[in-house]
């Protein structure tokens, strides 16, 4: 295997020879092979349209919502193929946070956090629900800010608070992996800083994969970084190594601002 791809022992996720095409031959992701380190933040960088979002969405099979999608290759979560289990089960193990905060507008803050259980028809006792909501909101540092308004709708929250609510909603399932698709791109700098701090705290218990086209964000908080270009995984290394000593000229060009 190429020396541009980081080797990881006991990975939580291993992607092998993954190719994804829209329609017949428009490849968004080309033959990507990479392992993802447990309890770490892995950033996926690259210019717009390089396939980073598609790669991210392939990990919890969200990309299958798009029409005419063709997927080849394999992704394993803790050694088990993600195609061997139902998407419902898979998405409980791999949570997702989106670019724009998207709490359910018709639900209260409490219902939003527990939505994954309620919508899937899980029958939990009230005390179990309370516990999940409390621990999830504590984890994202939102509990003190919203504890008096748990039964109100979340639309009075700021963008940053809404995004943390969405993280809490993903945490409620205690997933193995959390996928984040540019989670701060719609937020102001202060809220962004809070989310970044949160991610660094969360990696103690969770594995985070973060798509970003903000290079400094990747440099600040990620442990490992992938650089994608035109659907290919060009380089994958420890973030510090990649930012100081990129092995591929395309990575260097992107990191030094020659394109992107």
């Amino acid at each position: 295997m190429s020396d541009k791809i980081l080797q990881i022992s006991n990975p939580v996720l291993s992607i092998s020879n993954l190719s994804i095409a829209y329609g017949k031959d428009k490849y968004a992701v080309k033959d990507v092979t990479a392992d993802v380190k447990r309890n770490a933040i892995t950033a996926i960088m690259g210019p717009s349209g390089c396939g980073k979002s598609t790669l991210l969405r392939a990990i919890n099979r969200m990309h299958e919502l798009y029409p005419n999608i063709h997927t080849q290759g394999e992704i394993k979560l803790n050694g088990e193929s993600i195609y061997g289990i139902s998407t419902t089960k898979l998405r409980r193990k791999i949570g997702m946070v989106f670019q724009r905060p998207n709490p359910f507008p018709t639900m209260s803050i409490y219902e939003n956090v527990i939505a994954g259980y309620n919508l899937n028809g899980s029958k939990l006792k009230k005390s179990e629900k309370d516990e999940i909501v409390e621990s999830s909101l504590t984890d994202v540092g939102l509990l003190d800010e919203v504890k008096d308004s748990l039964n109100k709708k979340g639309n009075f929250l700021s963008g940053g608070q809404q995004q943390r609510l969405c993280v809490a909603r993903a945490l409620a399932f205690k997933p193995d992996v959390i996928l984040m698709d540019e989670p701060t791109s719609a937020l102001d700098p202060l809220s962004t800083a809070k989310i970044e701090d949160l991610l660094v705290e969360l990696k103690e218990h969770y594995t985070i994969i973060l798509v970003t086209h903000n290079m400094s964000q990747a440099a600040r908080i990620s442990d490992n970084a992938m650089f994608m270009y035109l659907g290919e995984l060009v380089e994958y290394d420890k973030t510090k190594v990649m930012f100081t000593n990129p092995k591929d000229s395309r990575t260097e060009g992107y990191l030094t601002g020659k394109f992107g």
Partner: peptide, 12 residues
Amino acid sequence: SIKEAGAALGVP
């Protein structure tokens, strides 16, 4: 995005 939020939680 609201629909995606549901799908990402594994809701059928």
